[in-house]
Amino acid sequence: MTDPTLGASLRGAVDLSSLRNRPAPAAPGEEAPAGAGVAVPSLVLDVTDETFPQVLELSRTVPVVVDLWAEWCGPCKQLSPILEKVVVELGGRVVLAKVDVDANPQLSQAFRAQSIPMVVALVAGQPVPMFTGAVPEQQVREVFAQLLQLAAQNGVTGSASVDGEAPEEAPAEEPPLPPLHAEAFAAIEEGDYARAVAAYEQALVENPRDAEARAGLGQVRLLDRVQGVDLQAARAAAASAPQDVAAQFTVADLDLAGGHVEDAYGRLLDLFAQLPADERTPVRERLLELFALVGDADPRVIAARGRLASLLF
Rank of each mutant, 00 (worst) to 15 (best):
Asn104Ser: 09
Ala292Gly: 03
Glu279Lys: 14
Leu311Pro: 00
Val88Cys: 05
Trp72Phe: 09
Asp210Ala: 14
Pro4Arg: 01
Pro242Thr: 11
Pro41Glu: 07
Thr5Asp: 07
Ala186Asp: 07
Gln109Cys: 04
Val95Lys: 11
Ala8Pro: 09
Met1Gln: 09
Leu56Tyr: 03
Ala113Glu: 08
Glu168Ala: 15
Pro117Thr: 10
Arg305Phe: 00
Asn104Met: 13
Val120Phe: 15
Leu56Phe: 03
Lys98Leu: 10
Glu142Met: 13
Met118Phe: 14
Phe272Val: 03
Leu148Gly: 09
Ala134Thr: 06
Glu30Lys: 13
Ile188Leu: 13
Ala110Val: 10
Val156Phe: 10
Asp263Trp: 01
Ala213Leu: 07
Phe272Tyr: 15
Leu148His: 03
Pro28Thr: 05
Arg11Asn: 14
Val220Cys: 04
Arg221Ile: 10
Asp298Glu: 04
Val88Gln: 15
Gly12Arg: 10
Gly258Asp: 11
Val128Trp: 01
Ala213Gln: 08
Leu268Gly: 04
Thr157Val: 09
Arg267Phe: 03
Phe291Ile: 01
Ser17Asp: 14
Pro167Arg: 08
Gln219His: 13
Pro171Thr: 07
Ala234Leu: 12
Arg209Leu: 15
Arg305Pro: 02
Leu271Cys: 05
Gly258Trp: 08
Ala215Val: 11
Gln106Asp: 15
Leu268Trp: 01
Gly12Trp: 00
Ala70Glu: 04
Leu79Ser: 05
Val87Lys: 06
Ser161Pro: 12
Val156Arg: 07
Val245Phe: 05
Glu165Asp: 14
Gly12Lys: 01
Arg11Leu: 10
Ser161Gln: 14
Leu275Ser: 06
Lys77Ala: 11
Ser9Arg: 12
Ile82Met: 10
Leu19Ser: 03
Pro276Val: 12
Gly216Trp: 06
Ser80Ile: 09
Leu107Gly: 12
Val88Ser: 14
Pro4Gly: 04
Asp192His: 09
Asp192Gly: 04
Pro63Ser: 10
Ala211Tyr: 04
Val140Phe: 03
Gly164Leu: 10
Ser80Glu: 12
Thr61Ser: 12
Ala213Ser: 14
Ser159Gly: 12
Leu290Val: 01
Ile302Gln: 14
Ala186Gly: 03
Tyr200Asp: 12
Asn21Tyr: 00
Val301Asp: 00
Ala309Glu: 09
Gln126Glu: 15
Ala39Asn: 01
Leu293Ala: 02
Glu262Arg: 12
Ala134Pro: 03
Pro175Val: 02
Leu58Gly: 04
Ala187Asn: 05
